[in-house]
Deep mutational scan, measured.
Amino acid sequence: MIINNLKLIREKKKISQSELAALLEVSRQTINGIEKNKYNPSLQLALKIAYYLNTPLEDIFQ
């Protein structure tokens, strides 16, 4: 099972779900679904998340 630290990292960087969704060009519901482990992001989306949060991919999804 993948450990998902997206919410923790996003909140630590003081970025809202809506702000991150806008940067990634996805819906806020997509971010919410990823954070609640209801949706697994594509590799492309996971890499974009890591880029915009300036955090290694391995720290977000373990």
Rank of each mutant, 00 (worst) to 15 (best):
S18F: 09
A46E: 03
S18C: 10
I31Y: 06
I3H: 13
L6N: 03
L20D: 00
Q29E: 15
L45R: 01
E11V: 10
I2N: 08
L23G: 08
I15R: 03
K13E: 06
T55S: 08
Y52N: 04
E35Y: 03
L43W: 13
S27V: 04
N40I: 15
I31Q: 00
Q17W: 04
M1R: 10
Q29M: 09
L24N: 00
Q44I: 11
T30H: 09
Q29G: 11
S27M: 04
L24Q: 00
G33C: 15
S42F: 04
L47H: 08
E25H: 15
A50Q: 04
K12F: 10
F61L: 04
S42T: 12
E35W: 01
S16P: 05
A46D: 00
K13P: 01
K48Q: 08
I2Y: 13
F61P: 02
I9D: 00
I49T: 01
P41I: 10
L23I: 11
N4R: 04
I9C: 07
E58V: 09
E58F: 09
G33A: 15
Q29Y: 10
K38T: 13
N32D: 15
Y51Q: 08
N54M: 10
T55Y: 06
L57I: 13
T30P: 01
I34Y: 04
I34W: 09
A21M: 03
S27T: 11
L43R: 13
T55P: 03
T55R: 04
A50R: 02
A22K: 14
K13R: 12
Q17F: 03
I31F: 03
I15P: 01
N54W: 05
L45W: 03
R28Q: 14
Q17A: 08
I3G: 11
Y39T: 08
S16Y: 03
Q44C: 14
Q29I: 10
L8F: 13
S27C: 06
L53I: 03
I9A: 07
E19D: 11
L57D: 02
I60V: 06
E58A: 11
R10V: 05
N5E: 03
E19W: 07
D59A: 11
K7G: 06
Y52A: 12
E35K: 02
L45I: 07
I60A: 02
P56A: 08
L20T: 01
F61N: 02
S16C: 04
L23T: 06
N54Q: 14
K48I: 04
G33F: 14
L24R: 00
L8E: 13
N37R: 11
E25C: 15
F61G: 02
L57G: 02
L43F: 12
I34M: 05
E19Y: 10
I9L: 09
I9Y: 10
I60K: 01
I60Y: 02
L45Q: 04
S18N: 11
E58L: 10
K14M: 10
I2H: 10
L57H: 05
N40G: 12
P56V: 05
T30C: 15
K38F: 13
K38M: 14
P41L: 09
N37S: 12
Q17Y: 04
L8D: 09
S42R: 06
E19M: 12
T55N: 03
K48W: 06
Y51N: 06
A21C: 04
N40F: 15
Q29P: 05
N40H: 14
I9K: 02
A46G: 06
T30W: 11
L43G: 06
I15A: 02
L23Q: 08
L57A: 05
Y52V: 14
K7F: 06
K36F: 06
L24M: 06
A21I: 03
A50K: 02
R10C: 07
S16M: 05
L47K: 12
T30Y: 15
N5G: 05
S42Y: 05
I15W: 06
L57W: 07
L45G: 00
L47Q: 11
I34V: 04
G33M: 15
V26K: 02
R28K: 13
I15E: 01
S27A: 06
N40L: 15
A21R: 02
I2Q: 10
T30F: 14
K38Q: 14
G33P: 01
E58M: 08
I15T: 04
P41K: 01
Q62A: 11
N4W: 04
K12E: 11
S18V: 12
K12M: 14
L24I: 08
A22P: 00
R10K: 01
R10L: 06
A50W: 04
V26L: 05
K48D: 04
L53S: 01
N37F: 12
K12P: 01
N32A: 15
Q17D: 03
L8S: 14
A21Q: 02
F61Y: 04
Q29H: 13
E25A: 13
Q44K: 13
N4D: 03
N5S: 07
E11Y: 06
R28G: 06
I9P: 01
I3W: 09
S27K: 08
L24D: 00
P56I: 05
M1N: 11
K14H: 13
R28A: 13
L45H: 02
G33W: 15
R28W: 14
S18T: 12
K7M: 07
P41G: 03
T30V: 15
S27Y: 03
L6F: 02
I31T: 01
T55W: 06
E35R: 03
L23K: 09
N5A: 06
K36L: 13
N32F: 07
I2R: 12
L43P: 12
E58W: 10
E11A: 08
A50E: 04
I49C: 03
K36I: 10
N4A: 03
I2K: 12
A21F: 03
P56T: 07
Q17G: 04
P41E: 03
I60S: 01
L20A: 00
L6Q: 01
L8T: 13
T30A: 07
G33D: 15
N32S: 13
L47V: 10
P41A: 06
K36E: 15
R28P: 14
K12S: 13
T30Q: 07
N54Y: 05
I49P: 00
N4Q: 04
M1G: 12
R10G: 02
L53M: 07
N4K: 04
I3C: 14
E11C: 09
E19T: 12
Y39M: 11
Y52F: 14
I49K: 00
I34R: 01
L45P: 00
L57N: 02
L53V: 03
S42L: 03
M1F: 14
N54L: 07
A46H: 01
I2M: 13
A22C: 11
L23S: 08
V26W: 03
Q17C: 04
K14P: 03
N37P: 01
I2T: 12
T30S: 05
L45Y: 02
F61T: 02
K38G: 06
L57S: 03
L24P: 00
K48V: 04
D59K: 11
V26D: 01
K12G: 10
K13Q: 12
L20E: 00
I34Q: 02
Q62K: 11
T55C: 08
A22N: 10
A21P: 00
L8I: 15
E11G: 06
Y39H: 10
K13T: 06
I3S: 11
E11M: 14
Y39Q: 09
E11I: 13
E19C: 10
S18H: 10
Q62I: 12
Q62S: 12
K12H: 10
L24V: 15
I9N: 03
Q29F: 08
I49S: 00
P41R: 02
E35P: 01
L20N: 00
K36G: 09
K36N: 15
I60D: 01
I49G: 00
N54A: 13
E19A: 14
I60C: 03
Y52G: 03
S42W: 06
L57V: 13
K14L: 09
L43I: 11
L43Q: 09
N32Y: 09
I2S: 10
K48G: 05
K7T: 07
L8C: 14
D59N: 10
R10E: 01
I9S: 03
Q17T: 08
L20K: 00
F61I: 04
E58G: 12
I2P: 09
D59R: 08
I15H: 03
Q44S: 13
K38Y: 14
L53H: 00
I31K: 01
L6M: 11
F61D: 02
S42E: 05
Q17S: 06
Y51A: 09
I31L: 14
L6T: 02
I2F: 12
L53P: 01
N5F: 09
T55F: 05
L43T: 09
I60L: 10
L23Y: 14
T55D: 02
A21E: 02
E25G: 15
L8W: 09
L57M: 11
I15N: 01
K12L: 14
E35F: 02
K7V: 06
S16K: 08
Y52T: 08
K14D: 07
K38E: 14
N32V: 15
V26S: 01
A21S: 06
S42V: 06
Y39R: 09
Q17M: 11
